[in-house]
Amino acid sequence: MTSKQQMKIEDIIAEYKRNPYQVFTISTPHTGIVSLKVTKGQKVQGTTGKWLERKGTLLYTLVRQGNEKRFYAPIDGEITDLDESLDGQFVEAKTPLMSIKHKLSKEEAINKVLEKFLEIYNAPETAKYYLAPELYQKIEQKGLKKALINPGEELLIMSRMKRDVVLNYEGRPGIIYVIYFKPNTTVNQGDPLLGICPPEQLEFISHLVKRIYLEWE
């Protein structure tokens, strides 16, 4: 590792140490009558469990057409910007209700830092994205950080204006390290979709991860 890289890592770590928070806005997915179940400043717990099978703190319920749905905290943190006036009211889709101020954990900080070192595949257009079926299967079988993608192979399916376009991978062979998008949600143009790591970089990346592990408190 060059000293330049070393410096960079240190800068980044310092920056995250200064402000180790990320704010998540919680908005209603659709219309309905909302009932808030948390108070301002309350600490909430996110999804847990090995398979993310245990739900977090109940944030609010939304009743639409006789169906009460419960919405849980996706992540640990503290409730801020709670709009209490909406409690018991009818709301439109995508109405912001509250924010969760989340303190980055060691792993998340690592992921954030990794974004700067991995080759990030950004969304070429604002569209919905899906993993290409073959790649999806590969990841299902082998798991993330194991599946290798070669140039020319199908990477993603971009779905926009009712048309599906296959995106082929270009560039050096790499390992799919992180997936940033969720299927069936619109990704804005330029947002990260995938983090790809060239196989020979794997060692450096794991070294980096170790460094942060040691230094992050």
Binding site: P29, H30, T31, E92, A93, K94, T95
Partner: peptide, 8 residues
């Protein structure tokens, strides 16, 4: 009114 989708 803002809704989530025209098809829902």
């Amino acid at each position: 009114f803002r809704i989530a989708s025209y098809t829902d």
